[in-house]
């Protein structure tokens, strides 16, 4: 693989509060190649969405990138001035958010919103932009697209609105799309359609995707590689089949075991005891050690970094080749 499209190095996101600084994301490093789909999973509060927001430069204050760097095509984008970052958003990195019902401005027709986005980023005339808008709507599977450009968001169903949102994210043909829980708010029957659509469009356009979700099924269906996050850190990353079939980190093992399966005939679902630590009470050593079934002495004091574990990498001392 050539140079990665997106490279995140040692990212740390902090929230300064009255009672001290909360570290929400720490030492997160990963890459996404051109056209690659990276799934990011984890419980809510693991830092998945924050990482996505940091990449498009839309962290909400007081949240801030405290350390690390983000590179797009080899260029740093985490320190760019406001205006330069704005030009990247939508043009080179698109975004899709969780709630399609709330993502569209209710007072503007979808045609207006598409044309506005297209003309912000591409040197097209009103007429050309209009044509592109209709093409995009057709591509995301909106029937009678030309007629529906004049319609307002409330005139579309949830699934159709998420299609419009996808069309908006793709409007200027970005190289990367950050999809933050794109199907969570939708009916199960619609979820599969949207995932299939997203997958097909990104393959056709060669768009890379960072797919943030807590739904392992969606990841298995869509992603090439997966990164599992826990308490603001990546605990395991690897090709999707390996992580799902042969999870290495005890947390991933627990996560996979907690998914009901028809094939594997299990009497009980595995359950991870306890819950993810709060940001202000992340334990020393490995943050997972209080819940880990395979915890040993070293986990209590030393924090593991990602290390090779077969075809994946896991942040767990079990895979340390040189025991301390």
């Amino acid at each position: 693989m050539n140079r990665p499209l997106l490279e995140v190095r040692h990212l740390r996101i902090e929230f300064p509060t009255r009672r001290g600084v909360l570290v929400a994301v720490d030492e997160v490093s990963f890459t996404i190649g051109p056209g690659e789909v990276l799934g990011v999973v984890g419980e809510s509060g693991a830092g998945k969405s924050l990482t996505g927001a940091a990449i498009i430069g839309l962290l909400e204050p007081p949240g801030r990138i405290a350390a690390g760097e983000i590179l797009l095509d080899g260029e740093r984008i985490d320190r760019l001035p406001h205006e330069a970052m704005r030009r990247i958003r939508g043009r080179r990195i698109g975004a899709i958010f969780q709630d399609p019902l709330a993502s569209l401005d209710p007072l503007f027709s979808i045609g207006q919103q598409l044309v506005e986005t297209i003309r912000t980023h591409l040197p097209l005339s009103e007429g050309e932009a209009r044509k592109r808008a209709v093409d995009l709507l057709q591509e995301v599977g909106i029937p009678a697209a030309a007629r529906r450009t004049g319609h307002y968001p409330h005139q579309f169903s949830g699934g159709m609105r998420q299609r419009v949102v996808i069309a908006l994210a793709l409007a200027a043909n970005p190289q990367l799309i950050i999809a933050d829980e794109p199907t969570t708010a939708l009916d199960v029957s619609i979820q599969a359609q949207i995932i299939t659509l997203l997958k097909r469009l990104c393959r056709d356009h060669g768009t890379a995707v960072m797919l943030v979700t807590h739904d392992m099924g969606v990841i298995a269906e869509t992603a090439d590689r997966v990164a599992v996050m826990y308490a603001g850190r990546i605990v395991e990353t690897g090709p999707v089949a390996d992580v799902i079939n042969a999870p290495k980190h005890p947390y991933t093992v627990g996560l996979m075991g907690s998914i009901p399966s028809i094939v594997a005939d299990r009497d009980r679902l595995v359950q991870i005891d306890g819950s993810m630590p709060r940001l202000n009470a992340i334990p020393p050593g490995c943050p997972f050690h209080p819940r880990c079934p395979r915890v040993f002495d070293r986990c209590l004091h030393e924090r593991p970094d990602l290390m090779d574990a077969g075809s994946s990498r896991a942040a767990c001392w079990l895979y340390d080749k040189v025991p301390a």
Partner: peptide
Amino acid sequence: DYIKFARARGLRDRAINFGHALK
């Protein structure tokens, strides 16, 4: 969310503040 999404679409501040937000 739609203002957040408008920012994610890379619209200019003027369009977001005086087009979408003000309306």
